[in-house]
Simulated scan of single mutants.
Amino acid sequence: MRIPSCHMEIEQVFLQLEKHECHSLCITSTNPGEGVSSLAQALTERHLLAGYRTLLVDLNLQNPSLTALSLDLTINNNESDTSHCLSYIEHNSQVVLGVPVPQNKAQIVELRQPKKLSEQIKKWHEEFDKIIIDSSALSQLNANNIPAQSIAGCCDGTIMVVLSGQTLQTELKEALTSLDNHHANLIGHVFNDKYQPRLKTEICREIERLHFLPNVITNKLITFVQNNRFLSTVV
């Protein structure tokens, strides 16, 4: 799913990141499929529109979203260097400057080490103003992945994506504890209401079902509900 960078919700997240002067950002979630990649891509686009040199880094080895159009990964003196390149976002047909998931096991092992990951982020900062990292879910801890907890601890800030109506409260608490143990700077949460529409969305849906009303009245009612400030604050 592609989230337009012009959405007011994306603008609010962007302004919070500006307020915290966040130069490297980790985006994660409790479980897979909560919308991390979509948010990372939308924020990358928003920062580019603001004039920042922005790099999208895909460290979600379980569900990668970037495909390299050109790849230049080299290993010198037994040390791996993860380079950026033009990358293709498969599900929305966009091209960005990014870092696809590492394919070399030596690179994965290195990036699992917080010290090495911090050094790599510093290298990226030599060329870019903003680094946005699409990480795996906090619950996905295995030998073939780069723990999101470690990534979060190496970044200036972290955003948690929560799938409303799906993520359990106990799971969220465990995820927050894990981030705290890794000294992550949690800036905030973004709630994905894919399965839990807002009240005004439900009202508009019910209005559309009133087929006995003329279209003119239906459209006026829907416009009124959509522009109502109070309903915009109610989930």
Rank of each mutant, 00 (worst) to 15 (best):
H183F: 11
L213W: 06
N76K: 10
Q12P: 00
T177K: 14
S38L: 03
T30L: 05
V109Y: 12
A137S: 07
E208L: 07
T158Y: 03
G33L: 07
S178Q: 15
R112M: 08
T54E: 02
Y195H: 14
I133G: 01
P214V: 03
S70F: 04
Q140W: 01
V99W: 01
S118C: 12
I131S: 02
V234T: 07
R2K: 10
Q169D: 00
G98H: 08
K19D: 08
Q140C: 00
N104A: 13
L186H: 08
T201C: 11
N92R: 06
A175H: 03
L86K: 08
P32R: 05
Q94L: 10
I108L: 09
Q62D: 14
L176M: 11
E110C: 05
V13H: 02
T158E: 05
L213V: 05
L25Q: 01
S178I: 12
V101F: 03
M1W: 07
I133V: 11
L25H: 00
K115L: 07
A42D: 02
L66V: 02
S93Q: 14
Q196D: 00
S139T: 11
R198V: 01
T158S: 11
T223V: 00
L210P: 00
Q166T: 14
I203L: 14
L43T: 04
P32W: 02
L56W: 02
K116G: 04
I131N: 01
M1Q: 12
V225E: 15
S65E: 02
L163C: 07
Q94Y: 06
T28N: 06
N145G: 04
R2T: 02
R209K: 14
Q16W: 04
T54V: 05
E127N: 09
V96Q: 09
D129P: 04
S93K: 10
L56A: 04
S38W: 02
E126P: 04
I75A: 01
T82H: 07
N63F: 10
I203M: 13
A143Y: 11
V216H: 11
N142E: 04
C85K: 08
C155K: 06
K194M: 10
V99T: 07
